[in-house]
């Protein structure tokens, strides 16, 4: 086992990918707890598709991917948040509309410029080779911001997630926290997208929260557990993908799925046992 790890980390690109991946998983899981509980899970999916579109345009324009993607995806995040809040158009339908449109724009732009090639596959399903030094720096900054936010504003995030109307009525600036969470989610997605793939990145947001909600009964434990589950799953996923030469993004998602099923089975098992005791 140790040999495999030392062998793995002899490659600089793998070290970079693991650092960025671990930090992105951590941020995604923390933000995901709030998003999933507020029924905003689809936002992650929508944003990653918008990210794919911007990535395609950036490549076509020969621009740096992050400088184009980050502002556009942040804007899209605010827009999606607005749509989810106003119930005039049903939020989920509007998000599906935007995300498939962005995907279509991306595909058309790519086919008009470079043509459908392996790049497209990399964008959609992720590539471990995509991480640069700048990504490492950005992910460290992002992780620091997200962790600080969660420690300092933990109580406010809980209140806004549990009952936004109550929080707003009693004087908490819920709009600010919603925007902050949307903003950080957008950056997390753009960062993680090229490694995990546009179609797979949203699982980093949704799986850890759902998994830890199977067994944890307090918001605090749900949050902490989600962070651990996410980081551990990512690491196992990368090692598996190295050993069996499987795509990184897909491997991480499969590990997440396995852990989710495990937690689910544990809870179902627990309830059945409890039921027997009572009977």
């Amino acid at each position: 086992m140790m040999e495999t790890l030392t062998e793995m980390f002899a490659y600089t690109f793998l070290v970079r990918a693991v650092i960025v991946g671990l930090l992105v998983s951590l941020c995604a899981s923390l933000l995901g707890v709030s998003l999933v509980l507020k029924r905003y899970s689809m936002i992650g999916d929508g944003l990653s598709n918008v990210g794919f579109g911007t990535l395609a345009i950036a490549t076509a324009m020969n621009a740096a991917p992050l400088t184009v993607s980050i502002p556009v995806v942040v804007l899209a995040a605010f827009l999606l948040l607005r749509i989810s809040e106003n119930s005039k158009i049903k939020g989920d339908a509007a998000i599906a509309l935007i995300s498939s449109s962005a995907l279509a724009i991306g595909v058309v732009v790519i086919s008009l410029t470079t043509g459908m090639n392996t790049d497209v596959c990399g964008y959609l399903f992720g590539s471990i080779l995509a991480m640069s030094k700048g990504d490492v720096v950005l992910s460290v900054v992002l992780a620091i911001v997200v962790l600080t936010l969660f420690v300092l504003c933990y109580n406010k995030i809980f209140a806004v997630t549990f009952d936004e109307n109550f929080a707003r009525a009693t004087g908490t600036r819920t709009g600010l926290y919603n925007m902050l969470i949307a903003f950080l989610t957008a950056i997390t997605i753009v960062l993680g997208m090229r490694m995990m793939g546009a179609l797979l990145i949203s699982s980093l947001i949704i799986f850890p929260a759902l998994t830890s909600m199977r067994v944890c009964k307090k918001f605090k434990t749900v949050t902490v557990c989600a962070a651990f589950v996410s980081v551990i799953c990512f690491f196992i996923g990368v090692v598996v993908s190295y050993l069996y030469a499987t795509p990184t993004g897909a491997s991480v998602v499969l590990v997440n799925l396995a852990v989710f099923l495990l937690f689910w089975a544990v809870r179902s098992g627990g309830t059945i046992m409890k039921g027997k005791k009572i009977l």
Binding site: F162, T170, K218, V222
Partner: peptide, 14 residues
């Protein structure tokens, strides 16, 4: 919602 009753009550003091 996965939260303890105490967490919910305490959030009223926010």
């Amino acid at each position: 919602f996965p939260a303890s009753a105490y967490e919910v009550v305490l959030s009223g003091r926010l």
